[in-house]
Write a protein that binds this DNA or RNA. Structure first.
Lengths: 233, 233
DNA sequence: CGCGTCAGAATTGTCGACAATCGACGATGA
DNA sequence: TCATCGTCGATTGTCGACAATTCTGACGCG
């Protein structure tokens, strides 16, 4: 029926899921910048669907923190504030430490091998200078900890945080150009994870997050002006 | 317009919000038991609204983990498994410890006073033997830690966990009758929180959650049969 | 010149009908 | 008897039109 399903290689599922996926990708890629209005009628036309599925897709993105809406007034791409970013990193610290504790309890041997593999992939993209790919491989690298925890609720929490992180990085990339993850920070991170000292791992994760906030904090205030209206999730 | 808004004392807002609120209340009160089917057409009739807002309300409850749906097939009230409950308590341990750390960093004097006040309210309902009220005051008591953290993302995470907790307690209450929170467990909990030793607070929270799981774990397997289909969130 | 008021437009909210899909049941043939 | 296939009922998915609300900007009044 829909032309869109032929134009793009979205195999098949409900329209709601397809629209949500494509809209999310557009937002996280920075194609639709933070603060930009998302008008339902316009979007439904450009995606060639009715407003029903589109609204439901928007609701989902609202839950993910990528979109903000005000009843009867308007919908916009979320704009993160400085405090939002601090919250993301601080909560992520707690979650990631909890995740690694779960992993250690499970003693899954495949974890270390996969960790090394994903780290290699991450290092490769960093060395190649591919900023966008670096962000993706870095998320996959950290995501392994949550996957290996076997904790479904924790994985949901991580997914929620990951979306907001991507939104932040997209805005960061737009504002300052190429500036992906750094090698040295991850070298010490993976070194701690491969070691045997859980306390050291906890400290390293906290340090890792602290570095993440510190090295980007000076750029954060330049993002603020984008948060005209709302910005809350 | 809608008759429903006159029958019940839901002041005014979007229908989606009203329906979500009423459905959530019905589920958490146990009026609609875990595993029960939620047919959109039937619900839209009984609430006297069209299926549009009702579907969006269902989507929200799905996000909250209270409802499960399979495309083109059916929607049901979520049924928690034993593993789900374990995950809820373990993640809650990590979040609550993180929350109390945030509270300590803020050094808000009003926190202790409000904590004592809510503890009194909790003790009053427990002594009165009011099971449902005890659950509510206990949630309000623990919720204070998250509110006082000033961490909005953390509060969202807590809201997500709280809904699932209520669902669990509702099922528990249905299966085994009156069995609310216990005084002794909370006496040591608040005692630690009012003290000055953060390490002791961490340990007490972990113990508190462990007690919560242990004292209920023997009943958990009796809940399992309810989880016929899905049960995942 | 400032300020309240009030159309008009823009946007989201809601509705009722139709289409697509899935699961179960029974017919049919080997 | 059993396996297979088709049909039917139930449920969710999708659509287009209409209603309610909010924002904006122009206009008149003091």
């Amino acid at each position: 029926m829909s032309i869109a399903s032929f134009l793009d290689a979205v195999p098949k599922s409900t329209l709601r899921a397809q629209i949500a996926e494509r809209l999310r990708a557009a937002i996280l890629a920075g194609d639709i910048p933070p603060g930009a209005p998302l008008v339902e009628t316009a979007l439904s036309e450009s995606f060639d669907v009715s407003r029903g599925p589109l609204r439901e897709a928007l609701r989902q993105l609202i839950e993910e923190g990528l979109v903000v809406t005000v009843p009867y007034t308007g919908t916009h791409v979320a704009a993160l504030s400085v405090e939002d970013v601090r919250e993301i990193f601080s909560l992520r610290t707690a979650l990631e430490i909890f995740a690694i504790e779960q992993v250690w309890e499970r003693r899954d041997d495949r974890f270390r091998a996969e960790l090394v593999r994903r780290n290699d992939a991450l290092v490769a993209t960093i060395d190649a200078g591919d900023d966008r790919a670096s962000i993706e491989t870095e998320l996959a690298f950290h995501g392994l900890v949550y996957e290996a925890s076997g904790h479904r609720l924790l994985q949901r929490a991580w997914a929620s945080l990951r979306g907001r992180l991507q939104l932040y990085w997209a805005a960061h990339h737009r504002a300052h150009g190429r500036r992906g993850p750094r090698r040295d920070s991850h070298d010490s991170y993976i070194a701690a994870l491969l070691g045997d000292d859980l306390a050291a791992v906890r400290a390293e994760i906290a340090d890792h997050m602290r570095r993440g906030v510190e090295t980007t904090e000076r750029f954060l205030n330049t993002l603020e002006p984008l948060a005209k209206r709302g910005g809350r999730s």
